[in-house]
Design a binder for these strands. Structure first.
Length: 416
RNA sequence: GUGGGUGUAGCUCAGGAGGUAGAGCACUUGGUUGUGGCCCAAGUGGUCGCGUGUUCAAGUCACGUCACCCACCCCA
């Protein structure tokens, strides 16, 4: 019989790797709740239309990266490729906008994109996500970015770069796109890659972050969106930067930072690591003031970010190495039951440890205790069973002595 | 979707120009050591990813196929 293997791009998270994920989640809860964010959990499966309408019909994500299939009644469903659309939908479905002026939520969980797997990229991957609805204030942009920065710092990550840009708004961006197209028209067409020759007409902003050398050269000389923001966008962007500076959050302006989801406007940002291979963006986000309305809700601004947990995991040194408090080594089969009873008592006192399920000689038992990095090895043989004692050995110093079983917790060097 | 790389023991990998599978680590047992760590000895463990072909003979050559990895692309 052949084994059934996992499907491409889907991975099992096993220990110790999985402990990084619980740590990221626990840390997110701790940090985000200090900023007033509450947890939200939304479905993994949504109507395809939700993503088509929010992320953008023409984006790569919608065009070729979604897991989409009909349900038993022929309705098109899609495994979420990102979290914001679903959270925005939930915000509307639950009329959360009517409960309070601003709503702060965070979530985490699996996302799905049909891409070729590589380092830092899986078909099922995980994100930590935060969204803030209901305010236009640039202070909110800065607070959200500061929270993200704080979170990454709390995870012990350094050597990260925060890239910042403004994409303008529906007032000023069309004008900039037109100027960009005009500029591109003056460039020799063959300098652009085939993709960009198409984008030139459909989505010219995307050319700015194309990595093909010819396109980069053109992009360098191209007009910058920062020079073409409308007055309100300029004021907004300046304010965001002012707060970030005041909070001592280091960032670099990157006029070529263009996000691949259509709903972003004004502030956008990305956190980059140079230490994890080609997929270097560990977090990204921005303002999406038009999104809620686009989904059929009231005009309601919003801003949010997502962190790629797989990519953060590549940077994390976790869990710290540590062994159990004790290993209870049973030397004689007749003592197996008593071993369990004694371990139960220790565990009730919050000591952490293992009991052997089978009796073995002292030599192999001590080898095992050593391998487990247990602090104490407790040896229980036929003689100890009879005398109601147990041998306690400190694995580090090698010291050992015989203790009454009734007083075992004290033997591990703790009082109560 | 497009490139490139890799698939041999539980793990990391050797196997020059085809001749019936190797090392280190790990594991088991024993010796030594004050009952563990160091050292020594023995032992368990492999349809060489899968299939077809060439050949007297294929881990080794050819073709195909699958899987994984890295990169493009895209993004977190």
């Amino acid at each position: 019989m052949h084994q059934i293997s996992k499907i491409k791009g889907f991975t099992d998270l096993i220990w110790p790797e999985v402990s990084k994920y619980t740590y990221m989640e626990d840390t997110a809860r701790a940090v985000f709740s200090a900023y007033g964010y509450r947890e939200i959990r939304v479905p993994v499966l949504e109507k395809t239309e939700l993503f088509a309408r929010s992320i953008g019909e023409e984006t790569d994500i919608v065009q070729k990266e979604m897991f989409t299939f009909p349900d038993r009644k022929g309705r098109l469903l899609t495994l979420r490729p990102e979290a914001t659309a679903g959270v925005a939908r939930a915000y509307l479905d639950n009329t959360m906008y009517s409960r309070e002026q601003t709503t702060k939520v965070f979530t985490f969980g699996p996302m799905f994109r049909y891409e070729r797997p590589q380092k830092g990229r899986q078909r099922q991957f995980h994100q930590v996500n935060a969204e803030l609805f209901g305010t236009h204030s640039p202070q909110a942009d800065a607070e959200l970015i500061a929270m993200l920065w704080r979170y990454l710092h709390q995870l012990g990550l350094t050597n990260l770069e925060l890239h910042l840009n403004s994409l303008g708004c529906p007032q000023c961006r069309p004008e900039f796109s037109r100027r960009l197209q005009e500029f591109l028209a003056t460039q020799p067409t063959q300098d652009l890659c085939p993709d960009c020759q198409r984008r030139q007409h459909t989505n010219p902003l995307r050319i700015l972050d194309c990595k093909v050398p010819g396109c980069q050269k053109s992009a360098e000389q191209a007009p910058k969106i920062g020079d073409h923001l409308c007055a309100q966008c300029q004021v907004h962007f300046d304010s965001v930067q002012k707060v970030l500076q005041a909070c001592s959050i280091p960032y670099v302006l990157n006029s070529r930072l263009v996000r691949g989801l259509d709903y972003y406007q004004r502030t956008t940002f990305e956190v980059i690591s140079r230490d994890i291979g080609a997929q270097s963006a560990v977090a990204g986000g921005g303002r999406y003031d038009g999104l809620v309305q686009q989904l059929g809700g009231p005009a309601c601004p919003g801003i949010g970010f997502a962190c790629g947990m797989e990519r953060l995991a590549l940077l994390m040194d976790y869990p710290p190495e540590s062994g159990p408090d004790f290993y209870l080594a049973v030397l004689d089969p007749t003592a197996l039951d008593q071993g369990q009873i004694l371990a139960l008592g220790l565990r009730e006192q919050r000591f952490q440890g293992e009991v052997s399920f089978e009796a073995k000689g002292p030599k192999s038992q001590l080898r095992l205790a050593n391998k487990l990095k247990a602090r104490f090895c407790l040896l229980l043989g036929a003689e100890e069973l009879k005398n109601k004692t147990i041998v306690v050995k400190d694995m580090q110093s090698g010291d050992q002595r015989t203790w009454p079983q009734s007083d075992l917790p004290a033997a591990l060097g703790f009082n109560s």
